[in-house]
Design a binder for these strands. Sequence first.
DNA 1: GCTATAATTCACCAACTGGTTAATTAACCA
DNA 2: TGGTTAATTAACCAGTTGGTGAATTATAGC
Lengths: 112, 112
Amino acid sequence: MSSLQLDRTFAALADPTRRAILSRLALGETSVKDLAMPFSMSAPAVTKHLKVLEHAGLIERSRSAQWRPCKLKAAPLKEANDWIEEYRRFWEQSFDRLDAYLQQIQAKDEKP
Amino acid sequence: MSSLQLDRTFAALADPTRRAILSRLALGETSVKDLAMPFSMSAPAVTKHLKVLEHAGLIERSRSAQWRPCKLKAAPLKEANDWIEEYRRFWEQSFDRLDAYLQQIQAKDEKP
DNA sequence: GCTATAATTCACCAACTGGTTAATTAACCA
DNA sequence: TGGTTAATTAACCAGTTGGTGAATTATAGC
């Protein structure tokens, strides 16, 4: 799990347009034009976003006539997920505390 | 789960120095100076990284004399984790295929 | 060969990032 | 009070990012 790869993956995910593109690609392969449609954004802007995603290994591109369809590749997401998982105990810990607090409240309520 | 919050979290994680800071903070609260030590980087540069992390809600700061210790807050990591989890089936799917392939290889080996 | 469509490259721009050094603020200590 | 340490702010710089419009490339279809 290279640090540079994580840099690229997280940077790619840090933009809402790119996250939306990925969620669209989760439904299946698509042309650049179809990807661009929901965004009020020029075609070159979308091309740039696709370059970032491709460079991060999050999509793969092919050729079909004048179309260059995009396909989701989720492998880098697994690496990102593995990195974040290392911190799971920290957010679960705080939920445990919240949980304990809520139970404490409830215990008080039950004593009339 | 706000999009802006995800933007900030992923952007904060996209830098290796900031990831290293988080992993140091996983060991416990620390001063800025101690955080800066392992990096060949000026104090103001570290302060800037801490600002990014704080703005993303990934750390919290307190006061103790002339020190301003940092503490890990993992809640935004849970949101990021939740977002990525939506794509789990995509990377597991490909591992399933790899798994099937490996089993197929093995099956061939077992037939002499 | 001509025209329409899909997508990219190019040149440009404003804003942001990640770093620097120098100056400043804040607290401790003697 | 004055000196030391911790940390931040300020001013600056080079490189990257996210967008634009105009020109270019590539392919389909008549």
